[in-house]
Computed example of a mutant assay.
Amino acid sequence: MNNHLSFEEGWKVLEQGIVKCSKILECTSTRPTVNEYMNYYDCAYRMAVQKQHYCPEMYNGFKMMLAECVRTMVLPHLMHKQNDSFFRELVKMWSNYCIMIRCVIGFFSYLDRCYVKQYKLPSLSNTAATSFFDPVFSYFNDEARTALLTMVEESMEMETKRLAYYLEISSGDSYPLCLQAVNAPLMETYVSYVTEKQIGGQLMLETYKIVEEELLGRCSSLTLG
């Protein structure tokens, strides 16, 4: 602890850890071993508590490394995919990214607890989420919006029995006809809602199910006239 650790020397070690964890994005690597994990943690801790600390440099380096990981390892996987295929790949990459981030944030946990909190900066987890969704929905906003709206439509089709119950439809030709009549206004309402509120990207991904539930809930008071 008495020997000063330069930023270049320390960051080289941490960079190796981040690169190793980034392979999780493509399922080509496992998590660091316990010894590796402790080595990365000790390195980041030393750089944060020594007299000439490198907390700002580590915080910025963390963001830059994640941005590079997303640019080179996430965006290419989403190219030329549409609708359900796009969404499945997005969910897969986000799931792998979350596993990667849990490992990487562990290296910088002291930085997150002290420096980030002291200077009221976005937490490392929030920074990581922004580093993922900002470029994804900057490059693929139209694809993401189309994929999510398509999923809402498909989800509504799966809710036919539920809608039928709400509308008190028993059987016969009126069943599909009434469902068709209800589905269209629901979709129009949802599209108008996300357009009016300028919902897109991460927020749209997180809230479309909630919005759908609210819209379907309105059907509970409807009956056939």
Rank of each mutant, 00 (worst) to 15 (best):
M204Q: 05
A147M: 02
E15I: 03
M93F: 10
L222D: 05
Y208R: 01
L66P: 04
T150G: 13
F107M: 00
G201L: 00
R113E: 10
M151I: 10
M1I: 08
M158F: 12
S6T: 09
E8G: 10
E153R: 13
P76K: 03
E143R: 03
D142V: 12
N39C: 08
F108P: 00
F107T: 00
P76V: 07
F133R: 08
R113S: 07
N141D: 14
Y59C: 00
Y166R: 03
Q50N: 01
R113G: 06
L163I: 14
C43M: 07
E212D: 07
Y59G: 00
Y175F: 07
Y37R: 01
Y165C: 11
T195M: 05
V34S: 14
F7Y: 15
K20C: 07
P176D: 07
L66C: 07
K81E: 02
S109H: 15
M100Y: 09
S174A: 15
S192C: 07
A147E: 02
T146C: 14
C103W: 05
V34Y: 11
L203H: 08
L179E: 01
E188A: 04
E15Y: 13
N2T: 12
M73Y: 05
D134P: 02
K117S: 15
N35Y: 05
T30R: 13
M1L: 15
H53P: 03
V211N: 04
G172R: 01
H77F: 08
N2Q: 15
T223H: 10
R102Q: 14
D173M: 08
E57Q: 07
S155M: 14
V136G: 03
L78P: 01
R218K: 13
L121A: 02
M93N: 07
Y110A: 04
L222V: 06
M47R: 00
C21Q: 02
K117M: 10
L78T: 02
Y40I: 00
E153S: 12
T72N: 11
C98L: 13
H80D: 13
M47C: 01
M1Y: 13
Y208A: 00
Q180S: 15
N35A: 15
E159A: 14
I24M: 06
I101F: 07
M38H: 09
E196W: 11
N3Y: 08
